[in-house]
Simulated assay, not measured.
Amino acid sequence: MKTVRFSAERLLALFQQTPVATLAQLKTAPGTDVDLTAFRKLSALPYRTSYSHRGAYYTLDTLAHYNSLGLWSYRDIHFSRHGTLLDTAARLVTNAPAGYFTAELEALVQVAAKDALRQLVQRGRLDRRECQARYLYCAVERERRQQQWAARQAQQHPEDDLAAALVLFYSLLDEQQRRLYAGLESLEWGHGGDQRMAQLFGLDVDTVARGRVELLSGQVLRQGVRRAGAGRPRVEKKHPKS
């Protein structure tokens, strides 16, 4: 029995007529009723599946006009250079200077994203913390997450130039310096300072308290300077017997 072969050129001709197609159209173009055959031919092309409509639409990367975020919409059908909605949400949140609230991300992707964000947090691909009775979604990497939180805090109080300056300076420090600086500002603030600085800089209250205690006790290790007694033990020189 002779095997019937289908050419991907028929799919290219289809996409020249319409930039977005359904699976039914993909099967009709080469004249097959088998899903696997259509997908096998489609795999030879730089295609993309919509992250909206449960992935029911297809296009070619060469036809999509992605914006600076890697998103493209054709009518009410949405595509992403990053792939699925999960992958897209993870990339956009991680790259966002101040993270995203759910509503902010949904305004960009133009579909519901609450469930996708919840799954990403559960899978350890994103982190979240409460901010003004809402969840702010941030990168999972610690340093990036702290930068996003600090930037968001500065946005929440644009009239407070001093707070914005503190957050900016804090973002330039290394890990030990950030802890000590947060502790210093907590001392300056007085009662409730640990909680206030933790909120401002996106730290745990215990981290701020640790920095404050280190400053008060003087137990601060200068960068590049070892504590007394640290390092390899001294080796005494041996003199040859006469």
Results as ranks from 00 to 15, higher is better:
86 L>I: 07
121 V>E: 08
100 Y>F: 15
108 L>W: 02
88 T>W: 05
116 A>V: 03
135 Y>D: 12
123 R>D: 13
95 N>W: 08
82 H>R: 12
82 H>E: 13
112 A>Y: 08
119 Q>P: 00
84 T>D: 13
77 I>E: 05
107 A>L: 05
100 Y>D: 04
106 E>M: 02
82 H>W: 15
126 L>G: 09
107 A>R: 13
70 G>V: 09
134 R>S: 14
107 A>Q: 12
124 G>P: 09
132 Q>D: 12
70 G>P: 08
122 Q>M: 06
80 S>L: 06
86 L>G: 10
87 D>S: 10
102 T>R: 13
128 R>N: 09
76 D>Q: 13
96 A>P: 01
84 T>Y: 08
104 E>S: 12
102 T>S: 13
82 H>S: 11
72 W>S: 05
108 L>C: 09
95 N>K: 15
85 L>F: 06
91 R>S: 11
108 L>T: 04
96 A>E: 11
90 A>G: 03
124 G>Y: 07
77 I>W: 05
116 A>I: 00
98 A>S: 15
110 Q>N: 11
132 Q>A: 13
128 R>P: 01
112 A>I: 05
124 G>T: 10
106 E>R: 05
111 V>T: 14
119 Q>E: 06
84 T>N: 07
135 Y>C: 03
112 A>E: 15
111 V>N: 04
90 A>W: 01
92 L>W: 11
73 S>A: 14
77 I>S: 01
88 T>Y: 03
93 V>T: 11
98 A>R: 13
86 L>S: 14
109 V>A: 03
